[in-house]
């Protein structure tokens, strides 16, 4: 399903990032998460984990789901962190600032593993080297 991806702070994301805990389990639990509205969550079949894929289809990331009425239908929210930024659209409209808010993405249920922050760097950015 197609969604608009909104990313931003959450208070615990801030607490853990500023506290230097980006490689902690707690940070992963807070940030490797996709917030989905109840209607869309049902349509997706209430999955525990989803794979979010970037606009151009070149990058995807698997994260846990959180069903909440805080987001509107057709939108998803992910805390700003390495997981969400993997799928943020890198085009900046000649402003230098990528589309952190409102990137079109695809979401599908997934059974794959949710990577640790360090593994995102090693596996995705270093290609497993």
């Amino acid at each position: 399903m197609k969604f608009l991806l909104n990313t931003g702070s959450t208070i615990d994301e801030g607490r853990l990032a500023k506290g230097g805990n980006k490689y902690s389990e707690e940070y992963k639990k807070e940030c490797a998460v996709c917030w989905i509205s109840p209607e869309d969550f049902d349509l997706l079949g209430c999955p525990e984990k989803v794979k979010v894929t970037s606009t151009d289809g070149r990058y995807s990331i698997v994260v846990n789901t959180k069903c909440t009425d805080r987001v509107m239908c057709g939108n998803i929210f992910m805390p700003r962190a390495i997981w969400s930024n993997v799928v943020v659209n890198p085009w900046t409209f000649s402003t230098g600032s990528p589309l952190y808010k409102g990137s079109p993405v695809t979401v599908e249920p997934s059974d794959d593993e949710v990577l640790d922050a360090e593994d995102v760097v090693l596996k995705l950015y270093y290609g497993g080297e």
């Binding site: 980006k22 390495i82 930024n85 993997v86 890198p90 360090e118 995705l124 950015y125 270093y126």
Partner: peptide
């Protein structure tokens, strides 16, 4: 975003920081 982060990991990079992270 991934394209930028990936290239940053490929080129020689000096980092000044206080805690582990990407």
């Amino acid at each position: 975003p991934a394209d930028s982060a990936k290239y940053l990991c490929q080129i020689p990079m000096v980092c000044i920081d206080i805690a582990p992270g990407p």
